[in-house]
Design a protein around this nucleic acid. Structure first.
Lengths: 346, 346
DNA sequence: ATTAGCACTCAATGTTAACGAGTGCTAACA
DNA sequence: TGTTAGCACTCGTTAACATTGAGTGCTAAT
C-alpha cells in the first residue's frame, strides 16, 4: 500500500516537521532530502499520502503536515524495529541524579519527574507508587508524653506512615506495648483491604480491658492506611510548553496548563493508559480529553520486585522527538526499578 | 501636599483601574464618580498628580494609570485606618475547608495555598514550617526484620520523620531498646543545631559495645534531622495569572510562571519579606526580581505557640484587590495558627 | 512514470486612512 | 483665582486594500 518512496517522503516530512513545526512543501523536501526526483514528483506523492490520510494541509497554499496516523505508523515502526539503543553511560548519569535526592520514595519519584523534564525538555509526569496490595509488616505505638501516642505503620514495600494522636486518659508504656503486640499479632501480613474488613469484624473484643483506647485508635489506623493508598501525581516542567510554537496561542497554553494542574484527572489518565507494553504511547486524537488532543503522551512503568507500582512519562506536542523520549523513558524505567529495589532493600 | 480632592481623584482612578485594568480618562471619572467638578478640572488635578508621581501615562492620548507610589499610599491608608473587618462566619468556613484535608502539617499548608488561591483568585504561595529551633522530643529504633531498622524522630512541634536503614549484622530487639534509651537520654531536649554539635563530640564512647551499630546510625540521624529542617514552598493557582489582561502577552506569562516554578528563589523571597507587621506588602518595583516588578506580594505569618514558623501569601498584578486579599490573609493567619495549635495539641 | 511550466490560492505582510478616546492649552466666566 | 467650555493635537487601534511569495494542482512534453 505504501511503497518505499512514499515511506521515504512521509518520513522526510515527519522528521522535518518534528524539528521545524512548519508545514513542509515539495521543494523543501527535494532540497533537504536527496530522493533523486523532482518536486513535481514529490507533489504527486504528497497528494497520494494526503488521500491515504497520512498528511494534512493547513490550507491550500501551505505545505503539508503529518497526521496522527502518520505518527502512529512512524512510532510503531520505531518500537518494532528496536533500533533504539540503551546508552549505559547515560543510564548511570541519570541514576546518579536520581539517587542524589532520594531518601524517601515519594521524593525519588518527584525528583524523577524533574530530571526527566530537564533531560527531554518536555513536561514530565510521574505517578507515585500504588500499594493497595501491599501488606502490613509492622505496627507500633510509641509514647510521646502522658497523653500523646505515635502510631507507626510499616508495609512490606518499606513505606512508613505515622500519626500522632492524643488520648483522653493517661496511658503507660507497658500498656502501649501490650496493645502494639496484640495489633501486630492480629494484623501483620494483611493487605490494606483485609485490614479494613478485619476492623469491622470487631476483632478487638478479646482486648476488653483496653477497649476504650483501641476504639480511639482504630479510626486513626484506618485513616493512616488510606493515606498510604493515596495516589499522587507529580508534574514538572509544565512551562516547557511555552517553548513550542504551537502553543504561542495563549488560550491553548492556558488550557494545557490548567489541564496539567488537575492532578486527579492526570492520575486517571496515567492509570488507564495501560496496554501491557513497556512503552505506551497515545498520539493526538487517541487522547480522550480535548485539551491534549494535540499532544502525545508517552509513559513507562516502574516496578518493585515483579509488580508494577507506578508510572512515569512525558507529554508534549504530537511532533515530539519520539526516539529521544522513548530512550530516556527506558533508562528511567530501568533505573527507578533498580533504585527502588535498593531503597527498600529486600 | 495632597488635598482632599486630589485624594478623591486618585482613589477613583485606583478603584477604577483595579477592576478595569484600563487607563482612566478624565471624562470617565466625572461620569462614574460624582465629584461635582467638570472633566477639565479633573484633568488639571490629574496633571498635578502625575507631576507628583502618583499617576503614569502609557502614552499621550491614553488615560492615566496609578503608579506604585499611588498603590503604596492607598495600601498604607488601608492598613492604618483598620477599616478591614474580620468576618467570623467566613473565618469558620475557611477553617472547615482547611481542617478537612489536614492530617499532616505539610499537607495542611499545601491545602491552605489551594484554598487561598481559590478564594482570592490569585496565585497563592505558602512556606512550610521552619523548625530550626525545635527540640527533639523522642527518638526510637524499631526492628523491622533481622537486618532492617526503623528510626523514628519526633520533635516538640509534633513533626515526625522516619527512615528505614539496613545493618550489616543481625541485631535483636533488646539491643535496639538499649540504644534507643541511650540516644533518648543523650539527645532529648536538644535542638537540631545542638545535636549536630553533640554528634561531633563523640558522645558515644560510653557505648563502646554498640559502637559499630551507632556509627551506622549517626549519619542517618543527621540526614533525617536535616530533612525536618528543609524548607518547602507550595504554589497554587499559578495559571490564575492568565485571567489578567496584563498577562495577555505570552512572554510575560511565561516569565511569571517560570519564576513561580523556582521554589528556592521563592523561599528566599518569602523569608526575606519580613518587616515585623502582621501583613506585609511589596508593591511592584519594590520587588527585587524583574519578573515580578509588575506584581504585588502580600504575605502573612502563621505561628506555633508564640513563634512564627511559616508564611502564606498571595501574588498578583499590582492592581490587585488589596482589601479583599488582606482580609483573606488575616483569616488564614488566624485559622492556621489555631489549627496548628490543635493539631500539635500542646 | 517523470518533470517543466504555469495559473491559481491564500496566509502573511505592508501601507494607508479613518477613528476616537484622551490630553493640554486658552480664553471666558463666576 | 479657581473652574469650565471649547478646540487643536496626539497617538494607538482598526479596517480596508494591495502586494508578496511559498506552495499546490494540472497539463503537456519528455
Amino acid at each position: 500500500m505504501l511503497d518505499d518512496r512514499k515511506i521515504k517522503v512521509l518520513y522526510a516530512i515527519i522528521n522535518s516537521y518534528i524539528v521545524s513545526a512548519e508545514p513542509i512543501g515539495s521543494r523543501t523536501i527535494t532540497k533537504k532530502y536527496d530522493l533523486g526526483v523532482s518536486s513535481a514528483t514529490i507533489r504527486n506523492e504528497m497528494s497520494d499520502l494526503e488521500e491515504l490520510g497520512y498528511l494534512n494541509k493547513p490550507h491550500t497554499s501551505a505545505g503539508r503536515v503529518p497526521s496522527d496516523k502518520a505518527y502512529r505508523l512512524y512510532v510503531n515502526q520505531l518500537l518494532n524495529t528496536g533500533k533504539l539503543k540503551m546508552d549505559i553511560k547515560k543510564k548511570e548519569e541519570i541514576k546518579k541524579a536520581l539517587i542524589s535526592e532520594a531518601s524517601e520514595i515519594d521524593e525519588l519519584i518527584q525528583n524523577s519527574a524533574k530530571v526527566l523534564s530537564a533531560i527531554t525538555s518536555y513536561t514530565a509526569l510521574a505517578l507515585s507508587p500504588q500499594l493497595k496490595k501491599s501488606k502490613l509488616k509492622h505496627i507500633q505505638l510509641l509514647p510521646i508524653d502522658d497523653l500523646k501516642v505515635l502510631l507507626v505503620l510499616v508495609n512490606d514495600s518499606g513505606i512508613v506512615k505515622n500519626t500522632i494522636f492524643r488520648l483522653d486518659k493517661k496511658i503507660d508504656e507497658d500498656q502501649l506495648i501490650v496493645i502494639s503486640n496484640f495489633l501486630n499479632h492480629k494484623l501483620k501480613g494483611l493487605t490494606i483491604e483485609d485490614i479494613g474488613r478485619e476492623m469491622d469484624n470487631d476483632i478487638f473484643k478479646e482486648m476488653y480491658e483496653y477497649k476504650k483506647i483501641i476504639d480511639n485508635i482504630i479510626p486513626i489506623i484506618n485513616k493512616t492506611f488510606n493515606d498510604i493508598d493515596s495516589v499522587e501525581v507529580y508534574a514538572d516542567g509544565v512551562n516547557k510548553i511555552f517553548d513550542f510554537p504551537e502553543y504561542k496561542d495563549l488560550d491553548k497554553a492556558k488550557s494545557f496548563i490548567s489541564f496539567i494542574e488537575d492532578k486527579e484527572l492526570l492520575a486517571n489518565i496515567l492509570l488507564s493508559n495501560t496496554n501491557g507494553n513497556e512503552i505506551e504511547i497515545t498520539i493526538g486524537n487517541e487522547n480522550i480529553y480535548d485539551p491534549i488532543k494535540e499532544c502525545s503522551l508517552i509513559t513507562t512503568t516502574y516496578k518493585l520486585g515483579d509488580v508494577t507500582i507506578g508510572k512515569i512519562g512525558v507529554i508534549g506536542p504530537t511532533r515530539m522527538d519520539y526516539p529521544m523520549v522513548i530512550n530516556a523513558l527506558k533508562l528511567f524505567s530501568a533505573n527507578l526499578t533498580e533504585i527502588l529495589e535498593m531503597l527498600v532493600g529486600r
